[in-house]
Amino acid sequence: MSKTILRVEDLSVRFRTEEGVFNAVDNISFTLEEQKTLAIVGESGSGKSVTSLAIMQLLAENGHISSGEIYVDDENILNMSSSQVQHNILGKKISMIFQEPMTALNPILKIGDQITESIIEHQGTGKKEAYEIALDTLKQVGIPSPEQRIKQFPHELSGGMRQRVMIAMALVTRPKIMIADEPTTALDVTIEAQILNLIEQLKSTFKTSILFVTHDLNVVADIADDVIVMYCGQIIERGPVVDIFENPQHPYTKGLLATMPTLEDHKGELPTIQGGVPSITQRPGGCYFHPRCPHRMKKCETQSPGVYTVGQQQVKCFLFEGNKEERNDGK
């Protein structure tokens, strides 16, 4: 059995909006094992970024964690003071890379400065040593002529190169966990493939576990070990990546797979789901997915389904009501 490195228990996140207070993430639980990749998949607006930012305690001002526990190395980081989290967790045990490489780097600081400051902060090394480590890491993320790049400013680098810099920045302190929130969404397809390869390769060199967030199931197939499918702030299906791809159970997961261009043969028999994710202020009653669901039943409109086990998977859907009930997540 591998060791659990990150455990999220019953996490809920609320936002204050003009229309009132709403849950963006609703009682979700998951674990990330050492040196594994866990993918969180779902359409835009399903709560993936909010989940990642909640773990980093970087939620927007109008948001807060309303319940739950987040264990890193068996310690609940929600019980720590914010300066403890800053000192001991962020950038040290968990790093994060973001979707937009164009805006995620500080435009007026040199690449080298932005990488070394983490090392200096967390490892107390001198400037010179930090510089050597940074240079080395830039080499490892495949940046050509790193001696020159390290002295450049972000605007002098392409999007792909900047994302490599972000990855170098995240890994330079050798964190146990890297959260990657749509790290390739802003890149074109060939660069995307390179970055995915790089992440996959670095996972073993740096012995890091990865929480990989994406709206694109395609991306997940090659790099994930396990997959969580999110919809409206809830986990609606989870399981090992092979099972999710070969045997999707939840109508939403099936729909997501049907929209994938690589699975031509599934088209037609699995119509792509219409519409989009409702906003947090407009979530329907019952099962959140029912208005878009091709298999909806009467009770879907009023009751929230429990979680049922199907083979290796867990599915939050009444279609599997006859199966063993795992737990009743949420309402």
Binding site: M56, Q86, L90, E100, T103, N106, E117, E121
Partner: peptide, 24 residues
Amino acid sequence: DYIRTARAKGLRNKVILYKHAFRN
């Protein structure tokens, strides 16, 4: 976004405010 990046790196508030935010 780059301020969020700086926070994600676990930098101290002073560094975030003066090195990253103020100069910009």
